[in-house]
Design a protein around this nucleic acid. Structure first.
Length: 363
DNA sequence: CGAGTTTGACCAGCGC
DNA sequence: GCGCTGGTCAAACTCG
């Protein structure tokens, strides 16, 4: 994945569309396309045609950007409708549900791009407020325990990106774990490892670690329970270790207190993801909670900070124009950094060019 | 030798 | 009741 940082193949179709005809010297454009071995027609005619094509592609690029913007807006409105619907359902459900909600069992899943810390550089591009019971696409079928147990034991899920060559299921999160079992589950050929916190004898926390079925470089760690002791060590990360580390997001409550909640960076089919688990900190107010999303890299110290305001009802912050703008920017950046998207786009463009040339009988 | 890991066996919950 | 599945146990094994 990091190869994109080595070779910039970005189409940059976002807000500064690449104006090939303006920015590239004409000769370079000509030579680039002549290099394709299509020198069967006079070069000058071909060059002007190609420039024409480039302009057309450029316009198409702009169109795609606009489409993306519209898509993002549609996405936002749909999501708002969904969260509105979910909040309505929550308010009309039983006390048990209310207990669960007051437990803060919401997750904010933040997609991100940028991975220049090898594993865990964090940049967010969108925020989803999700109920914990449908908290992610990685929700495994193993959590079939009765609802009461869900309420009593806090569970959180952390996604971590690891080196593809790293086959271990070790997640260094600052605690000391003892593995007590491993099992191959039905819906995932990768084995699931079971860990218990071994630092304190009475610590009830358990952890399940399994690679994602979608992207095996992603490790999904599910934590159950709360530690009754402090961390044993600082989380390790960086190139020196093979394993990734769960980062933590600082969440500032409306009272001004700052607490740290677990979060992680991942990469799945929909792009890099940060998962923020709001179940952990007790100090976080659910209603009119002011969140200070300070996403930092443990090693690089780089941080991107945005302040948004959310609420239990579904997050007015999502409607803020600056947030939506940020969302659109980050989604577009994610797309342009996605090799498969670029390949598909390139194929579509080249297909269109070929189609056009076939129709005009040239090339 | 102790701590941690591996792995097959066992148990409980659930659906049919 | 039976089979399937996830979770746990515990003996054997490995490693420092």
């Amino acid at each position: 994945m990091e190869f994109t940082s080595l070779v910039d193949t970005s189409l940059d179709l976002n807000f500064r569309p690449l104006r090939v005809s303006d920015e590239l010297p004409k000769q370079e454009v000509e030579s680039n396309f002549i290099g394709l071995g299509r020198d069967l027609v006079p070069v000058k005619d071909e060059a002007s045609n190609l420039i024409e094509e480039l302009n057309r592609v450029n316009a198409e690029n702009k169109k795609l950007t606009e489409m993306l913007t519209v898509m993002c807006q549609n996405y936002n409105s749909l999501r708002n409708q969904l969260t509105e619907y979910m909040s309505k359902q929550n308010s009309s459900t039983s006390g048990a549900d209310q207990d669960q909600n007051s437990d803060g069992s919401k997750k904010i899943k933040i997609e991100n791009n940028n991975n220049n810390n090898n594993n865990n550089e964090i940049v967010k591009s969108s925020v989803q407020v999700l109920n914990s019971e449908s908290s992610s696409c990685y929700e495994d079928s193993s959590t079939k325990k009765p609802r009461e147990e869900h309420i009593k034991t806090k569970t959180s899920r952390v996604y971590m990106r690891t080196e593809p060559s790293d086959t271990s299921l070790i997640v260094k999160d600052g605690y000391q774990w003892r593995k007590y079992g491993q099992k191959v589950t039905r819906d995932n050929p990768c084995p699931r490892a079971y860990f218990r916190c071994s630092f304190a004898p009475g610590c009830p926390v358990k952890k399940k670690v399994q690679r994602s079925i979608e992207d095996q470089s992603i490790v999904v760690a599910t934590y159950e329970g709360e530690h009754n002791h402090p961390r044993t060590s600082k989380p390790e990360s960086g190139p020196s270790t093979n394993t990734s580390t769960a980062s933590r997001l600082n969440v500032t409550t409306i009272a001004g207190t700052t607490t740290s909640v677990p979060c992680s960076t991942t990469l799945n089919s929909s792009g890099p993801t940060i998962t923020l688990d709001l179940t952990a900190p007790k100090t976080v107010e659910k209603r009119d909670m002011k969140m200070n999303h300070s996403t930092t890299s443990p090693t690089s110290g780089n941080s991107i900070r945005t302040t948004t305001t959310t609420s239990a009802a579904g997050g007015e912050y999502q409607n803020r124009p600056e947030f939506q703008q940020f969302l659109i920017e980050q989604m577009a950046t994610s797309l342009t950094k996605d090799p498969s998207f670029k390949a598909a786009l390139a194929a579509a463009i080249s297909g269109k060019i070929l189609q056009h040339n076939n129709q005009t009988g040239r090339w």
